[in-house]
Amino acid sequence: MKLLVLVLNRFFWFFPTVVGLMVITFTISHIIPADPVAFLAGDNASNEQIEALRRQLGLDQPMHIQLWRYLIDLTQGNFGNSLYTLRPISDDLSSRLPATLELTFMSVLVSAALGIPLGVISAVRRNSPLDHFLRIFTVSGLAIASFWFAILLQLLFAMDLGWTPLQGRSSGWGPEHITGFFVIDSLLTWNMEELRLSLSHMILPVMTLAYPAMATIVRFTRAGVLNAMNSNYVLYEEAMGFPRRVIIWKYVLRNALIGTVTQIGLIFGILIANAVVVEAVFDWPGLGYYAVQSILMSDYNAIMGFTFVAGVIFIIVNLIVDISHGFIDPRESR
């Protein structure tokens, strides 16, 4: 019952938040620039062209009507056309979305698979050399600029050692398009060569993205485990002689993970943000790369489209995290 209320409450706030996001992008694109039309038309447009464009875009209308039309357009997925690809921005974004999602999901997977056990071990062996090393390692992960780290990895592994591809998503044609996720598509078509290619192209970008995410997970898991180990239920479980590995990897970890899971939303934010520069460095044909190209082209409709889509993804992820938190923590759910 409580869970249902929670789910409904989160869904209820989903729509106002998305509308709020639209208002923000509207403000940035229509109110901040002194003359958005001149901005849109570019530097070489004549006065007549600008006026024609103004009428065509409805920018001669009062602000509240513009806002209303903007909301309607965005709701229908109409972001305008890209100056860079000359295609509808929504098509561009949707064709690039799988590449970014594949990269981010893989990074979440890797960072959680490494970060959670490392966080537990770090807490269990508190103040051991390993714990100190992990502290330095995680603090560095949060301080390193991901674009710089990406370049270092390229220098070392791709250029110097030649172990990994330098950039791109696949050096072949890519697997037959089914979902747009190369790993899934090559598995579905049982194309092992493409699978190998897509995975090897993913190594460096995923390392770059997963490092700060993993650092965050290690820190939160460590704190959560330490907190749980000081609890009365662990004292009870120890006093009743439960095997230590069962106490730590089942009873303590489950409690600690409740805190870590809520951080996945935060981590996803870091990943999406870093994806912009990481995709740019690795020429990864996803949303981030598209955004950087749009920056270079001063294609601001495309940037607004990217901002909006990135925001909506982030809102959805947080919605899922909030709701799953309700399922994971029994105290929230009944």
């Binding site: 912009v276 001063s298 925001g311």
Partner: peptide
Amino acid sequence: MRVSDIFLAVPQIVLAIAIAQTL
């Protein structure tokens, strides 16, 4: 608080890119 929540609902760098690009 709802307004600040909406700002927090977008990754900071993405929003900063949009604003910096416009300006």
